[in-house]
Design a protein around this nucleic acid. Structure first.
Lengths: 199, 199
DNA sequence: CCAATTTATTACCGATCGGTCAAATATACA
DNA sequence: TGTATATTTGACCGATCGGTAATAAATTGG
């Protein structure tokens, strides 16, 4: 009945959960990059044979797109919640940025930034996905900044979308920078410092 | 006599200039990445056969390191000069950051940031090279900021090295972000905005 | 039990990967 | 004119690349 029904009633049943596979694929692409990951890597990460991977997800590129989409959805879910914990917009902004910073340091970077750097210039599909994600996050931040300004928690005179652009660039920079440092003490304060310069 | 003499007096003379080759190699790695670049790519970019490349520079990895070093030296030379054009430290800082931003937008990113993201986590040699370059640039910025603070051009109360860290992260973010946008209007102002928030 | 259907598994494909080697070529020196 | 030395060139190497196809296995519905 349903065209996107996962379980067809007939035929041999799948022996894997799609999300578990996507997660393993995502992690592999995340820390090895697209060109740095072979089908063999993906097979040993998922436990599946490549025939199964192709039948279920298509070729390497489609599989990558699926895993990138999965990453975007998951990471946004995990992080966005922390922007609704407090009453004050500034506290929410701070909480959100702290959450992102912590995740970024722990996960040694961000798959979106990795893909942006490696693939966006030569891959239109990746570029579009990242573009959309970027625009959404930018709006999210702009809104928070706008409200913080209205409530006087941000005193600096500058358009909210330009301040949001500063945060977006800084976040991207954070994701890139953490890949080079085992000691992340210095960079953990960067977002705080930016915010406090707006007070 | 000289151990690093380029031209041995005996034997068939080279038909290429080392720097021209390094520049072509650098550009190829710069916009395709390490894993995304094949020996064939390097041959067609340089006009050399791979035998010649190996004999002159060693294997792919050594060749990459050479080209990354070349990039670091050249880009630093090109950019550092703009920090000595004016009398005021702040004007010099602004001029430097504008220069870097312009180069970054025009060149569609920065090879160091590309390599940081793609390779640093899995390549100790690359990581060390980037570490050194990072530390030097950080000191360079810290010094400018310190002087700007002493002259009252920067009024924000924060340690110079922490402000420098903010700039470093922002610059890395800029290099990553430009890879996703054909219209670079928005991000061209980011460094200005950061600086002006310190005034 | 018997089709029909879907997945799992494996063997296999041509192309390309990074890297090596030997022969040909071009120079300096004796 | 040789001889030694260094570079150029192209053939060649095994390994791995992404991707395909045929077959075996497991399920549902009749």
């Amino acid at each position: 009945m349903n065209l996107v029904d996962q379980h067809r009633s007939v035929g041999r049943p799948r022996e894997f959960e799609e999300d578990r596979v996507l997660e393993a694929v995502m992690n592999t692409f995340w820390n090895q990059g697209y060109e740095g990951t072979s089908l063999k890597d993906l097979c040993s990460a998922t436990g599946l044979h490549k025939g199964s991977l192709y039948q279920a997800f298509g070729d390497k590129h489609q599989l990558f797109l699926r895993s990138l989409k999965y990453y975007m959805e998951q990471s946004f879910k995990e992080v966005a919640a922390s922007a609704y914990l407090h009453e004050s917009p500034m506290a929410n902004l701070r909480s959100l940025l702290n959450e992102i910073t912590a995740k970024c340091i722990k996960g040694e970077g961000c798959m979106v930034v990795n893909s942006l750097v490696e693939m966006a210039p030569h891959d239109q599909e990746v570029k579009q996905m990242i573009d959309q994600s970027y625009a959404m996050k930018q709006r999210f931040l702009t809104d928070l900044i706008d409200r913080a300004q209205r409530e006087g928690e941000i005193t600096i005179k500058q358009e909210p979308d330009r301040l949001a652009a500063v945060l977006m660039v800084t976040l991207a920079g954070l994701a890139a920078t953490v890949k080079g440092f085992s000691n992340t003490d210095h960079i953990g304060y960067v977002l705080e410092d930016v915010l406090s310069s707006w007070a």
